[in-house]
Amino acid sequence: MQYDSPQALLQHAQSFAGFTLGELAERYKEEIPQRLLHKKGWIGQFLELILGAESGSLAQPDFPELGVELKTLPIDELGNPLESTYVSVVPLINIQGLYWENSVVRHKLMHVLWVPIVSSKHLAVEDRQIAMPFLWKPTAEEANTLKQDFEDVLDQVSMGNIDNLDARYGDILQVRPKAANSKALTDAIGPEGSTIRTLPRGFYLRPQFTKSCLKRQFN
């Protein structure tokens, strides 16, 4: 599906506001998984499908012609984010020449279509409801903080300090393990430049940050 502007994409996304995932799945003849434990990405993939996103798992924004990334945001009935938001994998090896300016993280976070979804634990998947989508760009201050967080992580990775990085690190971007299980290991730079095996890591946006984005939009 082609859009001539981010605003056209936003209008299409906002046409789904108020509908439950069950109602939309019925309209688009999609089967809803009863439990998301083993299909955690289904909601995001379903939204990509009905909005016509083309990137799939490629390292670029979901709507590359617009430079817009689609992010679903699970919230409770009071509008509080329920979890951190995955952005991209943390590169753990071959990071020469990688900077904030040419990073996947920056490309994905410069313009985001947020789709909040009321997803409290007591709600069945089909009863989760689409709230009002909105377009977001980081302020100059937020962009600087994102850049600092990213560069701090890359410095630690390059020095072989991957095991020092945990969820406490970073003001906006946090680093967390990103793996199906504890056996899914990948190569990383180890102490003194050696190669070690470790769990893949991902960049995530802190819930406090996405809460501030929601507050700015709807207050």
Rank of each mutant, 00 (worst) to 15 (best):
K29R: 13
L51A: 07
V90M: 09
A59H: 10
S57Q: 11
L205V: 05
R197F: 02
K29S: 13
G170T: 09
V104L: 11
E101P: 02
Q45R: 15
L78C: 10
P61W: 06
V118S: 05
P133L: 09
Q2V: 05
F63P: 01
S158G: 09
V153D: 04
S103F: 01
V175P: 03
V90T: 10
Q11M: 02
K211M: 08
I95E: 03
P191D: 06
W114A: 09
L24H: 04
S158H: 08
S194P: 00
E54M: 03
V157P: 10
G190D: 05
F209M: 09
Q14N: 03
C213R: 13
I189L: 13
T186F: 07
A131V: 00
I75R: 07
L58N: 12
E30L: 11
W114I: 08
I95L: 10
R201D: 02
G22Q: 07
N144A: 15
V89R: 14
P116R: 10
D4S: 12
W100H: 06
G44Q: 05
T139G: 10
I50Q: 03
Y28F: 15
G79V: 11
F19N: 12
R168E: 10
S57H: 13
F203P: 04
L36D: 01
A53P: 01
L92P: 04
L199C: 03
A184L: 04
Q217K: 15
G56N: 08
T72A: 12
L92S: 07
L146H: 01
K29L: 10
T85I: 15
V115S: 05
Y28G: 02
A167N: 12
P177L: 09
L146E: 02
Y28S: 11
Y99F: 14
S57N: 12
P191R: 14
S88A: 15
L21A: 06
A131Q: 12
R168A: 13
E48H: 06
I43M: 04
K137T: 15
P200I: 09
S88F: 13
R201P: 02
M110C: 08
K121Y: 01
D187T: 10
D166I: 09
Q2M: 05
K147L: 00
Q217D: 00
F218W: 14
A143E: 14
L10V: 01
E23A: 14
H38D: 07
S55H: 05
N219G: 12
D187Q: 15
D163Y: 12
L135D: 03
A59Q: 14
R206A: 10
N219A: 13
E69V: 11
H122M: 02
E192T: 11
W42I: 06
H107K: 15
H122T: 04
Y169R: 14
L58Q: 15
N181Y: 05
